[in-house]
Amino acid sequence: MRKRRVLTGYRPTGRLTLGHWFGNLMNMREMQDQYEAYYFVADWHALTSDWQDTSAVRRFTEEMVLDWLAAGIDPDKATIYRQSDVPEVAELTLYLSMVTPMSWLERVPSYKEQREQISDKDLGNVGFFLYPLMQAADITIVKADLVPVGEDQAPHLELTREIVRRFNGTYGELLVEPQAVIPKEGARVPGTDGRKMSKSYGNAIYLSESAEETAAKVRGMVTDPARKLKTDPGNPDICPLHQIHRLVGDPSVVAEFDRCCRVAECGCVAHKARMAEDLNAYLSEFRARRAELAQKRDLAWDVLFAGAERIRPAIDELMGAVREAMHVDAPSSR
């Protein structure tokens, strides 16, 4: 029996952060050994919200693939491809739209939430409205059995399952109804300002930035807001500095900073210096590999091309069956 097939994708909207590392990249490394893994760059999805300025999509695509490779995603184990290199995704999105009521798309929580919360982008376009439908096409076109989902993505996957049931009920059992796989919960990484680490908040530490850039960001980090003076006891449990240090530092060193902070025997400046040192040491192997990979001209594009070629036979087989079932295939007599 073949391994179950798992699919996950990232939008190329910028460099990957420390939050991505602990939130999902380590899970992706594990899943490529456990499943038949498909990892794709969702460049068309990036257009749905960033359509007014698409100038960085190609660069971010290349950088993200290099980040994946440097993090240990192996193109010999996982199929890595770009969404736009599979134009049938758009075709299948169209076919799925024929069986999907508008009300199903309107009820997706993230659609209304993002329309209300994101004020610096025009999200009134049809592409953004169809985002969940294209996700359904992404999943079904490779016959994914499993999709890693967090709490915010669960409604999207349930929508896909409903669409698949309706499509199959109309045209025959052609599409696989995917199941959710709950990945091992990644660590929640705070940003330099204490909020969740996010590129959009401007509080992110990037995996591929220099050691100097990382150290400068750590020096500017907020700590326990109640600790005004070095002589004030602190609470490491609410301090972003401590929370990140616990992920990357030697446990005995972290424990000592935890102890001395609580009794005001050490200050935040010394702790920031040590945390920056430990964080850079933790990322040093990744960064060295990332720099080495970046010297290989067109490596990312070669990986993406090979991935698209690898899935081509399966795509052709599925879409041939879909077109035939919907009676939009070429006449057999031609």
Rank of each mutant, 00 (worst) to 15 (best):
D122C: 07
V263L: 10
E265G: 10
H156Q: 11
R2Y: 11
T13G: 08
K121P: 03
M326R: 12
Y206S: 04
W301V: 11
V269T: 13
L279G: 03
P233Y: 10
P87F: 10
R290W: 07
Y282Q: 07
E62C: 13
A325R: 06
A255R: 14
V189W: 00
D85G: 03
K272D: 04
Y171W: 15
D237K: 12
A71P: 09
A300C: 09
F257V: 05
H242I: 06
V126Q: 09
Q135E: 09
T79L: 05
P225S: 02
S49M: 13
D298Y: 08
D302W: 00
K196E: 06
Y81T: 04
A78F: 03
P101C: 04
P225W: 08
F286Y: 08
L159Q: 07
G249Y: 02
C266W: 02
D43Q: 00
A137C: 12
G220R: 13
A204P: 02
R312F: 12
D50R: 15
Q52D: 15
S332A: 14
A314Y: 09
Y131R: 01
P75G: 06
E36T: 10
A270T: 12
E256K: 10
F22P: 04
E162W: 02
R107D: 07
D33C: 01
A300E: 09
E30W: 00
R290H: 13
A144I: 05
I139V: 14
E213G: 12
S252L: 15
E36H: 04
V149H: 01
V248P: 00
G14Q: 06
L174Q: 11
D302K: 14
K228P: 00
D76H: 11
P101D: 07
C268E: 12
Q153E: 07
L7Q: 05
K230H: 15
E277K: 09
K199Y: 06
P240K: 06
K272I: 02
V126E: 02
A273P: 06
V181F: 13
G72R: 04
K272M: 08
F257Q: 01
Y35W: 11
A71T: 00
D258R: 11
L304K: 00
E185D: 11
H242K: 09
L18V: 13
D85R: 10
C266G: 07
T17M: 13
L175M: 12
I141E: 03
G127C: 09
D138H: 01
I182H: 11
R297P: 03
H156F: 11
P233D: 12
F286S: 02
G127Y: 08
D50N: 15
M31C: 06
S49V: 15
R262K: 15
P155H: 02
T100L: 08
S119T: 14
T192V: 11
M28L: 13
V126C: 12
Y81M: 14
K3A: 14
A56N: 09
A136F: 12
D145V: 08
A321S: 15
M319K: 12
G202I: 04
V89F: 04
G72V: 08
Y111E: 09
G191Y: 11
R15K: 10
Y201C: 04
T192L: 00
